[in-house]
């Protein structure tokens, strides 16, 4: 999987390494900005109210 990505990136080894780093950072950003905020309320840490066991709403 990673080998396949590496072979399909353009440029020499240094350029590929740089693009890989940027791609990795972009994925981390997407995760922190959108994916984890979406997933976090599905985990049990939000249930702090007495309301019959649903979410905090």
């Amino acid at each position: 999987m990673y080998g396949w990505i590496w072979r399909h990136l353009p440029g020499n080894a240094w350029v590929r390494a740089l693009i890989s780093l940027v791609l990795a950072l972009a994925i981390v950003f997407v995760l922190f900005q959108w994916v984890f905020p979406w997933a976090e309320p599905l985990l049990p840490f939000n249930d702090v109210t007495v309301n019959g066991g649903g979410n905090a709403g």
Partner: peptide, 22 residues
């Protein structure tokens, strides 16, 4: 085997990132 290993490493990295987030 390599692909499965890479998927496992990726899943592990995702979980570590989620813990850092939380």
């Amino acid at each position: 085997v390599r692909t499965i290993s890479e998927l496992c490493v990726t899943a592990g990295a995702l979980i570590v990132l989620l813990v850092v987030y939380l």
